[in-house]
Nucleic acid binder design. Sequence first.
DNA 1: CCCAGTTATCGTATGGGCTACGGAAACTCT
DNA 2: AGAGTTTCCGTAGCCCATACGATAACTGGG
Lengths: 294, 294
Amino acid sequence: MTEFSGATDPDRILPLLWRHRTARKATTGRPPRLSVDDVVAAGIAIADTDGLAAASMARVAARLGVATMTLYTYVPSRTELVELMVDDVLGGRRLPGPGDERPGPWRDQIQLYADRTLAMYRAHPWLSEVSRVRPPLGPGMLRESEYVLSTLGAVPVARRNTAAVTIVMFVTAAARQEGENAQLRRASGQSNDAWWGQRGQLWEQWFDVEQHPAMTELWNAGGFDRGPDQQAADAFALGLRLILDGISVQRDDRVAQLPDALNAHRDGLAGDDLAHPSRRAGQDDVAGQQRHDM
Amino acid sequence: MTEFSGATDPDRILPLLWRHRTARKATTGRPPRLSVDDVVAAGIAIADTDGLAAASMARVAARLGVATMTLYTYVPSRTELVELMVDDVLGGRRLPGPGDERPGPWRDQIQLYADRTLAMYRAHPWLSEVSRVRPPLGPGMLRESEYVLSTLGAVPVARRNTAAVTIVMFVTAAARQEGENAQLRRASGQSNDAWWGQRGQLWEQWFDVEQHPAMTELWNAGGFDRGPDQQAADAFALGLRLILDGISVQRDDRVAQLPDALNAHRDGLAGDDLAHPSRRAGQDDVAGQQRHDM
DNA sequence: CCCAGTTATCGTATGGGCTACGGAAACTCT
DNA sequence: AGAGTTTCCGTAGCCCATACGATAACTGGG
């Protein structure tokens, strides 16, 4: 299940998230045996193999060869540790930055984002255990937002953010499922097929054909022949394609040449409410405003 | 974070999930003071107000006026209790069944599903804490599958299930976010807007404009003026619309009258080419495994 | 009416989790 | 050498799930 820990103090977590920007260290006092990076890396390593719950303060400390309470000099609490782990992994995708080369047209760039994100959740399935609303506002998370937005330059600004949030939401949802699968596979030592097979008695003993005609019909027509994993992959591919198809209709450079049937959809795509930007003066106003990721 | 408990024994959990079909009770021995329904209801009530973690065995028992260990006569472990809670709530949407009246054309029926699901996650935000892969195979979950499939009768069988899984995946993802929001709002006593406002120093102190030109540009253009909750709502509306638009193209009764530009998209929808090449490669690593949500 | 059989109740104990607190240790600088 | 500062970490308190075994409460048979 998804962990919800306490709220974190921005004055403590933000400097930690952006710790690589501030390199000043204390010159006095007992020198530290570890670094925050060490703690984060240990947490990730444990979570990768045994799940987020296994990355307890005690176990992270043991892996680093220190006492449990020692960790609290590096990290205010386990909540912050998890946030740091998440942002670290998010940044680990190494999505192309502002000056970097891009893999072709915008759709391929989105596909790169999707591929990397899927791979990230496969490598770090415990990400699925962490909520991504009110995400860690660190470099890793911001890099994601920047990349996705940068691929949508051809979408009118009034609709660009909605498009980005939609893509991120869908991709994250699919990746999260993938991560949950990996997690369950490891924890149960059982594949999805095995899990379903073990529950075959459901159909013989409990399933009521009368109550489920649509399922029964589709079953008889072979509509469930593809296994659960393939179904999920199909759904991900289809959903992403349809979303990108729809977004491409919003792109400035294509609107003109499309048939009326499609332009009809275009209207009100983001609703009237999206189209009235009360323009903000400068980026200095940024304080106090909200933006969001997903 | 998402809870992952141990694997449950189908021989124990299936009879519990379908307990209302089998009404025979023991005639001998000490009569029970409670019922499984009582325990499930107590768990839901506590989780509704204080989150899933608060629905501990001790607290559920206390609410029912019995000792903690007493619960274990009704439920094998907390894992099963949570599964029962989930299926109960899933069924609580009371989606129209086989004979029941439907609210108009298929799109409206999907919208009903989406609305009810959103409402369910708002009323029971702890659902967001529970993984929905390898879901409880009870009446509540099966009713959902049946309903969604029943709305897609006009989609060719070869593509129907993929369409259903895609819709469920997207709607569930959006609803889950909504639930996480509700949860965080209550746990932190802080709205989303307040949370972002409290982190205004991010932009002044840590945000690097050079590294994030696309975000900066969009910010200056007013692209982030809508608050986080509105952004999420916009994304949900857009994503669902685009997915349904795409699926409607697959419907038998509409294919004929659509322009070629759209029919081009139609091809390969359920086919082998569904997965993007690079993605498929990565996926084979995971071979042998997962099914998903739905 | 009593007792065997059966089922439900629940007290205790074990082992895990997070972290507040406060003292000890290790370093620099004067 | 001593003061100041920072890190290290042992103890203890409070939460959790649940294995085990004793006890309570009921039914049906004699």
